[in-house]
Design a protein around this nucleic acid. Structure first.
Lengths: 196, 196
DNA sequence: TGAGTTATGGACTTTTCAGTACCGAATGAT
DNA sequence: ATCATTCGGTACTGAAAAGTCCATAACTCA
């Protein structure tokens, strides 16, 4: 019906996601976004309403593209011990930093900045962080190392893991020394290894 | 020498610190700062050069007012077991959230945002985070629970603690549920208790 | 082919930002 | 008391921000 879109919506969302990821919500200006998406103002506002709405859409895109992968990894039955899944996740974070990816996590950055003052953004961020936490619970429940603990203890520990994840992503973004990132994950591994 | 300052520099710095703390570097506009400091534009630029320089000054103020307190607490010989000092620190973070203080940590917020792209700010933030880490090392070295581990293991664990601290502050700032904050710290206590 | 509809590009508007200019006020030094 | 100097308040500037408008283009459907 009528003139069709010239741009590929998914490519545009990818572009916007990368800009927001690299610069954060407030750091990403409209020209930045337009360049990253390869479209012009008219198209952006017609297709995505405004910057805030676009960001909410991008959060869902990020959920589908990245959070889902992390959640899947933490539920991956091919790795029988859930603690190993957790270690894999954190090693992937270290690997990203190692290859020069200092963007951290779109979610964590949004959680830290003024964008979080917006109720809708805040709710979305909270929901995604919750997904991560639940996935940690799943992983812990699937680990023999924590089999002797009760559900409450595992749920509590999941919060520590989420906190660790967020902290690590923020430190990465702040260009903390690689050794710090590595040591932090090393200590986490030792902790998980020490469990029973 | 000529006309003296009408305002109290320390009060003004406190005011600016609170504004930056509550809103972050980019979220704090000049009118915000002027109101919080109780002075006008002319005075601000005369006394503090510009916004970035003011922020650098505020980071030092924050160091003296808050980082130093945390570092002192972690070195407090009145608490013989260093692990207890660490627990106290984290309980204070929980207590802040409990009383409705969602500002988190000036440092952690700065580390996460675009302000960190500035080399001077980034360097200051890194230096303060390093102070925290070193203080964690001191505390761990003063704990009988970790006496059997080598220096390297304790230094590594200090990075985990710093990461945990940053993550907790960011989650607090994002208005994460109080139970999440509490559970995270609860799990950390369990971990420290489980050590030897 | 023409009518109706939606997409596009870019000029334009409005607001807010950080920072400057400058004048009058308040002080210390002589 | 006067002068030099610094401080304080405000009007101003220029840049950059987000968002709007609208003429034109490109399509579908009848």
């Amino acid at each position: 019906m009528a003139r069709p879109r010239k741009f590929d919506t998914n490519k545009a969302l990818d572009g916007a996601m990368n800009v927001f990821w690299a610069k954060g919500y407030e750091g990403a200006s409209l020209p930045d976004l337009l360049e990253g998406m390869g479209i012009t103002r008219g198209s952006l506002y017609k297709a995505f309403t405004d910057k805030k709405t676009l960001f909410l859409t991008i959060l869902e895109h990020y959920e589908a593209e990245h959070v889902a992968k992390a959640v899947t990894g933490l539920s991956d039955v091919d790795i029988p011990d859930g603690a190993d899944r957790i270690i894999t996740l954190f090693r992937n974070v270290v690997a990203a930093a190692h290859r020069g990816d200092w963007r951290g996590c779109l979610l964590c950055t949004a959680a830290a900045g003024p964008a979080n003052d917006n109720a809708e953004i805040s709710a979305s961020v909270a929901r995604l962080l919750d997904q991560m936490e639940q996935a940690f619970v799943v992983a812990l429940n699937a680990s023999p190392r924590f089999a002797d603990r009760d559900d409450g203890a595992r749920a509590t520990l999941a919060n520590l893991l989420l906190t660790q994840y967020v902290g690590l992503r923020i430190l990465t973004r702040s260009q903390a020394p690689l050794e710090m990132i590595e040591a932090s994950v090393q200590a986490l591994e030792s902790m998980l290894d020490a469990a029973q």
